[in-house]
Simulated assay, not measured.
Amino acid sequence: MPLLVVTLTIFGAINCFVNVQAVVALLLLSAGCANVVPVLYSAVGRQTFMPEHLAVSAITTLGYSGILAGPAALGFVAQSTNLPFALGSVGVLLAFVTVMGLVLPQVLINGEPPK
């Protein structure tokens, strides 16, 4: 659910023309993003494919890599195209993460494909 809030609010922040609407959309975006990390770490603790200490290290490395590379990649896409397209692509990627978040926990945690 938090990823759905993030996805919808980033599209709202891109498409609004009033500053108050942008601030409200970004507040909702922040609230959605704040819930992702605890959910991710709890899923890492429940998975059985990797030892927990290695899985937490891998997830933390991926998170920090995204913090470092994300703004540079977003700037590159924005300079190549335009800013609304770059931010819209972030929304599309978050929609993909939302879909994967619904499918992967069953596979990773339970070891069975979704029905």
Rank of each mutant, 00 (worst) to 15 (best):
M100R: 04
A73K: 00
T60G: 12
T61W: 13
F76M: 13
A69G: 10
S57E: 07
S65E: 06
L62H: 05
C33Y: 01
A95Y: 06
G101F: 03
V44Q: 00
I67G: 11
F49C: 03
M100Y: 06
G45W: 10
F76D: 01
G66P: 11
V36F: 07
A34N: 01
V90K: 01
P51T: 04
L102S: 09
F76C: 04
E52D: 11
A58I: 14
Y64T: 08
T98Q: 01
G91P: 00
G75A: 15
A73D: 04
A72M: 14
V37Y: 09
A34K: 03
F96A: 14
A78S: 11
P84I: 13
V44W: 00
T48A: 08
Q47S: 14
V77N: 08
F96K: 00
L104E: 12
L93R: 01
E52S: 11
P38S: 07
G66S: 11
V92C: 06
I67F: 12
L74M: 09
L83T: 12
A95H: 04
A95I: 02
G75K: 05
G70S: 10
V37G: 00
V92I: 15
I59L: 12
A72G: 03
N82C: 05
L54N: 02
M100Q: 12
M100I: 08
E52G: 05
N35Y: 04
T81E: 03
A78L: 02
A78W: 02
V36L: 15
V92F: 13
F85H: 04
V90Y: 01
